[in-house]
Amino acid sequence: MTFTKQTSVEQNNGAMSALLRKSQVDIAGLEHKAKQIRNMILQMCISTGGHIVSSLSFVDILVTLYYGGNLNFDANNPEWEDRDRFFLSKGHGETALYAVLADQGVFPISWLDTRYRKGDCRLGGHPDKEIPGVEITSGSLGHGLGLAAGISLAAKMDNKAHLQFVLMGDAECTEGSVWEAALFASKHGLNNLIAIVDRNRIGSIDFTKNFTSLEPFCEKWKSFGWETTVCDGHDCKQLHEAFQNARSSDTSLPLMIIAETIKGKGIPFMENDPTWHVRSLSSEEDIKRAKEALRWQ
């Protein structure tokens, strides 16, 4: 497989793709796009390694945001002042973000082949702000929510309508700074801030329940003054509805979308297995099985 531009779903043709009505969105198209993005992630990770299972975990979330018209974003002008901002706080989901941004045309798709973790490296093992379309440098956890809270507050001060979407990992929520930001966001009524937790229940070496007390997770966020909603993080329809509701909501609170996911989703032998966080696809047999699982295109 070589990377080529995919065009099967409504392409983000600038700001226009945003704010599609519920009835207009093509859920089957989103699912097809998600499959393409998973293939692109696999290709990148076969070639140079990378965080494969962490990325596979939230592909459907990212696709529903970027291709479902839920992110008001202009791929031709990624610095557009009034854009909605997407913050990848779990920086180890870089391959999914790079695949989407390249597919959207924000930077050349050839970079996935030639510049990810190799050569004249522009796409690192964690994203940085110098990359077109990337809002923040991430990789160390617990930064994204506070950064997004700051920009959400600036938007409020200036009466700007853009929204901030922050994607965090659930294990990331063991960082104290996450809860500092949670307190801050609710106090300041940042209803333009939407956090999504990729709730795959696995950290980098173990299941979260074996090393921390996240549960009752949803109630924790509620008690910190957040609106909360829980959905299936691999169901584009549910995700789309959650995002649509977030935009149309008249709440004065920040919103937490807890997306229940499976780490490694799409490649069954990697799914829900903590050991795959840092493993690379080295054996021919694993590569073959992974390709078969994704019905390699």
Binding site: E135, G142, L145, L147, A149, G150, S152, A154, S177, E180
Partner: peptide, 23 residues
């Protein structure tokens, strides 16, 4: 003026976010 509370990590992240927002 914003009193961000005794949360220095968030204090700096919020400051950076405000700066990203043009403040």
């Amino acid at each position: 003026f914003i009193n961000a509370g005794i949360s220095e990590q968030n204090l700096i992240s919020v400051a950076a976010g405000l700066a990203l927002g043009g403040k």
